[in-house]
Simulated scan of single mutants.
Amino acid sequence: MGSVRKKGTNWYYYFDVGTVGGKRKRIERAGGKTKKEALKALAIAEAEYFECGNIKEDSSESFADWINYWIEEIVNPQLAYQTYTTYKYIADSHLIPGLGSYKLKALNPMLLQKFINKKCEDGYAFNSVRAMKKVLSSSLKYAVYPAQKIRENPAAYVQMPKEKIREKKSKIISEENYKRILSFVETEPALANMIQIGWHTGMRCSEICGLTWDNVDFDNKVIHVKNNLLKKGKELELCSLKTTSSYRDIYFGKELEDLLRKQRKLENIKRLEYGEYWKNDFNLVCTRENGKAYYANLVTKRCSNISKALGIDFTFHMLRHTNGTRMLEAGVQEKVIQERLGHASINTTMNVYVKSTEELNRDAAEKLEALSSAI
């Protein structure tokens, strides 16, 4: 049982916590200006100690220092590299500039709510702001437990503002624009092949970048999706996929088979031309002329250039949306679409990638019209 005593003008609390080396160990802290304040501080300190084994220190650590520690020491070793880079970008670009100068213990729900509201007012996409809130909340949740830096998570009380209704942009590439894109990149055969593989398979950009020839089975006309190609710093690395559902087999038809065989022949020619300067270290399917790899950021930049040059909306990920939607329109079963796209949940397939299209909408109208005519 602890007690309090006055030292100078302040009151202190103290209590015993056991013995170390045969000597009694005591914790003593400043409790306030009055005996009442010291007794209250004693009760809180004893409750914390006997529940957690220690007393939370009044830390002066900044939020910037904390989130940098959390990202490098917790997120980086435990989560996928893509997740780490996303979290780090959000922290460096938004959270630290906006909140980093505050002490960790000074963050409160009103301050964080104002920060989130301001991001929405500044015109950031709703999903982007929601991602900021997720990273903020996750870092502070860890600061509560197991780090025991703060008593509760102030971000837990923050609400996302109402999403503003915006004009929906199509995530689908029309066949006409698809042909225009291929014509535009005809002088870059490997990039053209990547775009066509995306169109035919719905594979993610990093998956196509990491596709190796030993995972293309021409006999059975199947692609085994097993790798991502990621850029970590200045180095490229062939990495495992993020989830078990991402590992999958995608069967392909005659058109894609002809494309891949043509690419294989072209690569053999270029390999001979470049000789010792050939750089395809990973046996990749899609490489630049000298064998050097395409990686996701490079492809993203090229697609942005294509979009501006042609005056159309085009990102590589739109090929994936288009592939899923075309399968739905063709009557492919939802479960098959899910497996080909590598989604863990059928809800993701239906709600995110293959939402209602104009063709399906018209088809529904025609079917309802036929029912009405039959009455």
Rank of each mutant, 00 (worst) to 15 (best):
K367G: 00
K265W: 08
N347A: 14
I90C: 12
N361L: 14
P146S: 07
N361G: 08
I223Q: 05
S139E: 06
G53F: 04
T244I: 07
R320C: 10
L284G: 03
V299K: 02
H224E: 12
D92L: 00
K301P: 07
L310P: 09
N220K: 09
E167K: 13
T349L: 13
T212H: 11
K56N: 08
W11N: 02
K171V: 04
G275Q: 09
I208R: 01
T243F: 09
L284I: 10
N117C: 08
Y277F: 04
E369R: 00
D281C: 08
I172T: 09
I165Q: 10
L182A: 08
A293Y: 06
P161R: 14
L266D: 03
P161H: 06
A293P: 15
Y12W: 15
S240N: 11
T243K: 08
W70K: 04
K25I: 02
Q196W: 08
N228K: 04
N290R: 12
W199Q: 07
P77V: 15
T86I: 05
R271E: 14
N117A: 07
L284M: 07
R264P: 02
K164G: 09
A91L: 01
C303Q: 10
T19Y: 15
N215R: 12
A309R: 13
D16M: 04
C209M: 06
N68H: 05
F184I: 04
L39M: 03
I312C: 11
T34A: 05
E186T: 15
G8N: 13
I116Q: 09
C209I: 13
N347I: 05
Y274N: 11
K149G: 10
E73S: 15
T287A: 12
A156P: 07
T187G: 03
E329Q: 08
A309P: 03
E329C: 08
H317Q: 14
L310H: 10
L42E: 05
M160W: 04
K171N: 12
K367D: 00
Y124Q: 08
V4D: 02
R271C: 09
L310G: 08
Y89P: 05
I165E: 13
K231G: 14
Y84I: 11
I346T: 00
S304P: 03
N117F: 00
V144Y: 01
Q148P: 02
T357C: 13
V222A: 09
E121W: 03
E267Q: 13
I71E: 10
D313Y: 12
N215M: 15
T9G: 04
N220Q: 11
F184S: 13
L99W: 00
R326W: 06
A80V: 06
S138P: 01
E48M: 02
R261Q: 04
T83C: 10
S128H: 14
L319N: 11
R24P: 01
S137E: 02
Y49G: 06
G198V: 12
K35N: 04
N68K: 02
L360C: 10
N10W: 10
G18Y: 07
G253W: 04
L341Y: 01
V332F: 02
P146H: 03
Y14G: 02
S101W: 03
R5M: 11
A155T: 11
L95W: 05
K335R: 11
Q196P: 08
